[in-house]
């Protein structure tokens, strides 16, 4: 069972060894509405924390997905590129965006766990 972390930009990370699988949260996809397009990074690209790594679009909105931690892209999810509805249907599962090789595991300590994120979202409403 991997560890799940969250950011204030509504991204989730599932940590498995030195690789983090990243996507947007259920709350984020609800805010966006029907996702119509996902623009993914290239495998091999490296990002610093907070760099724009992907874009997710609904009919009336576009949101940048930032690299939640620094690292290099090792895999992207072609399913969400081909069938963006997956993001709505299974945001925190099959709707993942990319996998990142973690550059500095210490960065993970600054992220929220499930309980902290739930409280964070509640505070927004």
């Amino acid at each position: 069972m991997s560890v799940i972390k969250f950011t204030e930009d509504h991204e989730w990370l599932a940590i498995d060894g030195d690789v983090a699988t990243c996507g947007i949260t259920v709350y984020a996809q609800e805010q966006l509405g029907d996702v119509v397009f996902v623009d993914l990074p290239d495998v091999g690209q490296s990002f610093a924390t907070g760099d724009e790594a992907a874009v997710v679009e609904s009919v009336k909105a576009a949101a940048e997905v930032y690299a939640p931690i620094a690292g290099e892209i090792v895999e992207v999810n072609s399913t969400v590129a081909e069938n963006p509805a997956t993001v709505n249907e299974d945001a925190q599962g099959g709707g993942w965006f990319f996998k990142l090789r973690i550059a500095d595991a210490g960065e993970l300590d600054g992220l929220m766990d499930q309980a902290a994120y739930d409280a964070f979202v509640e505070g927004l409403e």
Partner: peptide
């Protein structure tokens, strides 16, 4: 495909 446009994407 309006998300390309200024009224949604603004400076981007």
């Amino acid at each position: 495909l309006s998300t390309r446009e200024q009224h949604i994407r603004r400076e981007k």
